[in-house]
Structures are given as structure tokens and as C-alpha cells.
Write a protein that binds this DNA or RNA. Structure first.
Lengths: 214, 214
DNA sequence: CCTACCGATCGGTAGG
DNA sequence: CCTACCGATCGGTAGG
């Protein structure tokens, strides 16, 4: 069962002061690791640099993970939590069907505009960084993106079930198109500094959804 | 004047045997560098690894460029030539307007299906890798992607001028949408191993273009 | 284009 | 969680 099928994202990112201190340290390392990786890449993330930024020794930090690969995977896990919280928490308050689907799209573009990850969407970057690097890190990124696409497809299917979208809408096809527009917005916003990136994506999403409305 | 405004791409990639041998060596280094960078990233490209693959010394290879940054920029230049050749050479044989725009879209998706760069589109990967890493490498990637988007917009404008697309089509908006679908196809094809990625993108492109046809 | 280097940093370990 | 290391590799240089 994937994280994204949970009813809501447990916001475990800001560890409560009650948590064991080892757990709190680990979470503060991962929060920083996520931001750093979004800026420099998941491979560009180095233990030395991360330790320096946190004011601790390399080996002290290293002891929490055991290998760079484990650190990368734990970083992906922490980024997933932030992603799910940002994209779904608000949207799940909307009624299922068209309103919720629309809310997911709005959340996604807002998540880019607000730079939830300082270097742009962690998973868009990780997807393009690891798509041709076989191994456990790629597998984890792929699993996460499969979960995300399935969650998006599910929200489209619900909109069909509620009678909000036409019966001949192909959920996988529409999910592909919406996700493409999201990644395209990330590209235009972060690389091209296109101030109209978000509105262009909004317009394209709206045009597409309106055309499929029942 | 950007490379992409040239009437056709001079295929200087396979250096003729006539070229000075220094030039030939340089080109063979860059051909390999482009492939390696598409697999491991432009930052993951290392002089030692590249030299080893080519059976030459690090310093011998290094002498051609002077710094890693210069190697990265020369690699981007070499990748641009391959990109322009693949996307535009065939398409420029089509009559301007709708047929040529359609041909550019077909070329792009064929370029993904055929893995022209072994690790997927060099520029999609470089865009997400460098969007938050200021410096000359990012500047060169951005310039190349600005050129590409402008070339795509120009082909849309031509289709309007020929009376093939509706007068109210916004070239920058449509270019944004098409490019998003191309990058989305790259994502689905290389990370998700989605065998339907190309046809989904084809379908989305066709649906969008048909809706804007005059 | 080579050999022979340089200091810095990488991931990782020993031992506490 | 630390100090003190390890071998390997990084980008880069000297000198030919």
C-alpha cells in the first residue's frame, strides 16, 4: 500500500519536541537534505556539505544512515511527505469529483509558485536525474511517481463516477496530459524565469478540463 | 543570431577525415561527452571517466578545454547540433504552416522513441539539473531552450500566417503546451517505462492541434 | 598528446 | 554523536 493511498498525509515533517532526540536530529538532517537535493540534485547531495550546513561532523551525520544510498532514499521519503501534504491536504477538503481534481491542479501550480522546494519540484528534478541510472534510488523515485500518477488518475476516475466528466475520458491519458503541463510549468518557471508560466499552465489545464466536462 | 535560426543544421558532428586531427579528436571527445552527460548528468560528467572511456590521459583530454566548465559548455554546444539536426532537418522539408509544425512534433516524439541521446533528451535533463544552479552552464542551457521555444513559436506563427490555424491562437501559449507534452513523453518513456508514452503524447498533440485548426 | 604530480573532497571505517 | 583516519577520485598544473 503506497503512501499516497492514505486518507491524509500525516505531517511528520516538523517532529514534535516530544519525539526521541535521535529521531528529531534525523528529521532535521532530512529537512535540510531535501532542500539541498532540490537545488543541487540527489547525486550532488554530499554528506560533507550537509554536515557542514548543519554544524555537525560527517561521521555523526553518516551514523544515521549507513550509506549515501540510504541517505538518498530517506531523503526521497521525506520529500514525499512534503509533496503529499502540499498537493493533497487542501484538495481532500474539496468534494470528490471535478472540484477536487481542479483543486489538485491548483495546488500543484501553487506549489511551484511558492517554491515549496527551493530548487523547484523535487520529484520532477529527481525523475530526470535518475531516469537512466538503474538502482535502488531510481526504483524509489519511480515508485513514488507511479503512486502520484495513479492518485491523479483516481481523482479523474472519481470525477467520471460523479458524472462530472464525459464517459469516454481516458484517466491515464488525461493524467499524462495534466502532469505534462505541471512539469512544463516547472520548466518555464525555474529555468526560463517565465513570469507567465503559471498562468499559461492554468489556462491550458482549464481549457482541457472544460472540453471534457459533461 | 542563434543556431536555431539557421536555414539548416550543418551536420558537423561526424567530423570529416579531412578536418585537422586536433579538431577530429575534440569532436570524438564531445560525441562521447554528450552521450555520457545524457546518462549521468552534465555535472556527473567527469574528466577522468571520459578520458578512460576514450583510452586517453586525463590531462591530454583536459588540454582541449581548459576547465570542466568549458567542457560542459562545449558539450552543450555539441548536443545542440545533434538536437537541431534531429528535430528540424526532416521537418524543414515540409511546407511551412501546419504540415511543418506537425512534422516538428513527430520528429520530437520519434527522437524520444529512437533514444537519440541514450539517457533521454539531453536538454530536458540539463534544464531540470541546472535550473537552480546559477552560472555560465545554466546560462547556456537557458539560451538554448529559449532558442528552441522561439523556433517552436515561429513555426506556430507561420501556420497562422498560412491560414492553417485560427487567428486567436497564442503562439507562446501553444508552444508551452506542446513542449510540456514532449517533456511529459520523455518522463513517461524513460522513468516510468510507459510503452504507451509516445502514443499518448501523439494523441494529445493531435487533439490540441485539431482544435485550433481553421 | 604524455607522465607525474598537487590539494581538496568524496564515501566510508575504527574506536570511542 | 565525536576525532582521526582510509583509499579513491575529483579538477587542475608543471613540464615536456
Amino acid at each position: 500500500m503506497s503512501a499516497m493511498t492514505a486518507t491524509a498525509a500525516a505531517p511528520s515533517t516538523p517532529s514534535p519536541a516530544l519525539a526521541p532526540k535521535g529521531e528529531r536530529t534525523r528529521q532535521s538532517i532530512l529537512d535540510r537534505a531535501v532542500d539541498l537535493a532540490s537545488l543541487e540534485g540527489l547525486q550532488g547531495l554530499t554528506i560533507g556539505r550537509l554536515a557542514e550546513e548543519l554544524g555537525m561532523s560527517k561521521s555523526g551525520l553518516f551514523a544515521h544512515f549507513g550509506s549515501k544510498e540510504e541517505l538518498q532514499i530517506a531523503t526521497i521519503e521525506a520529500a514525499s511527505q512534503r509533496y503529499i501534504t502540499e498537493i493533497f491536504t487542501e484538495a481532500l477538503r474539496q468534494p470528490r469529483g471535478y472540484p477536487r481534481l481542479q483543486a489538485i491542479c491548483d495546488s500543484w501550480l501553487s506549489y511551484i509558485r511558492r517554491s515549496v522546494f527551493p530548487g523547484g519540484c523535487f520529484f520532477a528534478a529527481a525523475s530526470f536525474e535518475f531516469d537512466s541510472r538503474p538502482g535502488p534510488v531510481r526504483d524509489r523515485v519511480r515508485q513514488m511517481m507511479d503512486d502520484w500518477m495513479h492518485a491523479l488518475e483516481r481523482s479523474i476516475r472519481m470525477a467520471k463516477d460523479e458524472g462530472h466528466l464525459k464517459d469516454d475520458v481516458d484517466p491515464a491519458q488525461l493524467a499524462f496530459e495534466l502532469n505534462s503541463l505541471f512539469f512544463g510549468a516547472n520548466f518555464a518557471f525555474y529555468l526560463r524565469d517565465d513570469q507567465q508560466a503559471i498562468e499559461r499552465a492554468e489556462r491550458a489545464v482549464l481549457t482541457r478540463l472544460q472540453a471534457l466536462k459533461k
